[in-house]
Structures are given as structure tokens and as C-alpha cells.
Amino acid sequence: MITFLSLLLTGLSTGAIYALVALGIVLLFKAAEVVNFAHGSLLLLGAYVTARTWEAVGFPTAVALGVLVGALAAVIVERLLANPMRDAAPVALAIMTIGVDIVIATELNRRMGPDIVVVGHPWGGTAARLGDVAVPANRLIALLVAGALIVAFLVAFKLTDWGVAMRAAAEDRETAALLGVRLSRVTTLSWILAGALAVVAGIFLAGSPTPGLSPAVGVIALRALPAAILGGLDSTTGALVGGLVVGVAESLAAGYQDQLSFLGRGFGDVVPYVVMIAVLLVRPAGLFGTREVGRV
């Protein structure tokens, strides 16, 4: 039972991190019909900046720098590439982001080499105890921070002018434009937010129990894609639920891998994709996705 609780908690915290990334992916899809395959690279880029600067400027400033660079890179991609081809088909946009991903990932791979770069979290590798359940402090903090960010995001999405404009644009871009909504501003802000959220997620992903930042973190971040799609690419609720489902399923599969040994070692890493395909078989537009958007 204690194992189960600790696995559940780990899963929830991983899931909250995935949800941050998935939220960004969903946001970009709603705002601009872009499925951003470069999201993992943006995440890695920001976390890399934090990892390279914390010794010089201290952790909090380094986090701010990383988030800033991630958001900036997202805006550059948007202004320079996504915006000029905003009338192109979603598949063309997605292929463009694959090109961006190749470029950023290659440069980061080159800079990191085979090394693991440590992100200097002040809490390091300490474990936090909740009763008899022990989890890395990093994961507990991730859960809290991600939870707070998600709540803040949802409140903004529900209550601010930006949130209303964003939802309107996702539903009917032409009418939104005719009402005077500045679509390009809404879209740019979405890229900024998506980039920033991804970097925060990346900084936590590179912490305990993960030894540090390496290109492998980008691979882990890629699991936010199945999370986003199993929830429904156009649903913020879907991103949250999808993130948590993927995180918990992965954690349980990894924790009980001795009992699941017939599925092979490391099955936990595959679980997000198995769950995704299973869900898509039943609901091709994801759990909370709408049919119309599922047909894009």
C-alpha cells in the first residue's frame, strides 16, 4: 500500500509536469492550429540556459533566464516561421516545426555532448516524507508549482480578456477578427506562454530522480504529446487529464515492473503511448476533444 501511494504521488507529480507541457501544446493548437513538434526542444533549450547559468547568477535568476529564453525562442519561431505560413495546412505547419526541432536539438546535442548537465536546484536530491511515503523533494515541489501554474492558467483562460479572445479565436477565427480581436497578438501570447510553461516543466524534469539535463530529457518531454492527444488536442481539460493519466500510468508500470516482467523491462517508458493508442481506438478525437477539430 505504501509502495502504491508513493508510486501514485510520483505519478501525479510527473503527470503535473507533463500537463504543463501538454497545456502549451494544446494552447498552440487552439491558437494557431500548430502541433508543435519542437516543443521538446524549446523545453530543453530553456532548461539548458538555466543549467549553464545558475552557478554564475544563482538559481532563481537562472530560472528566470531559462524561462525568458524559452519564451523568446517560441516567439521567434512564431514571428519568423509560423506566422508567415499561418494560412497553410496544419500538417505543413507541423512539418515546419519538425524542421525547427532538428535544428535546435542538433545544436543542443552538440553543446551537451554525452555529458549530463546539472541544474542546481537548491533542494537537490533530498527526499520529502509524507507519513510513510517518501518522494524526491523535487517532485513534490514540481507538483505544487505545476498545480499553482495550472490553476493560474485556467483562471486566466476563464476570466481575462486574453482568455476570452483565445477561446473565441479557437472557435471561429474569422468572426473573432471581424469583432476586432487582434489574432496575431493572441497567437504570440500563446507561444510565449507555451514556451515558458515548457521550460518550467523542463527544469523540474531535469531534477531528482533524474540525474540532470541531457538530450534524454527531451525524449521524456515528448511524452506530453500522447498526453495532449489522448486528452484531445483542442481541450485544456484534456491536457490536464491526459498529463495525469500518462504520469500515473507510467509510474505504476515502472513501480510494478517485476510483476509486469512479461511485458519486458522498461515498460513504463512505453505506457504513455500504449494508453494513447488505446484511447484513440475508442475515441479518435481524444477524451475531451471535439469532433470537428478531430477532423482537421
Partner: peptide, 24 residues
């Protein structure tokens, strides 16, 4: 616009709010 083009997933007040916001 023709066909009203109401935002179905926005509330009535959010529809109004969007229009006011769009006009600054």
C-alpha cells in the same frame, strides 16, 4: 455577420465582452 456567428462555447456575456474588447 450573416448567420449571426455567435461563439457557441462562450457565454452570452463573454460574447459581449469579446466584442467590447475587440473595439478597445
Amino acid at each position: 455577420p450573416e448567420g449571426r456567428r455567435i461563439f457557441g462555447r462562450l457565454t452570452v456575456e463573454e460574447n459581449l465582452r469579446l466584442a467590447a474588447h475587440g473595439a478597445g
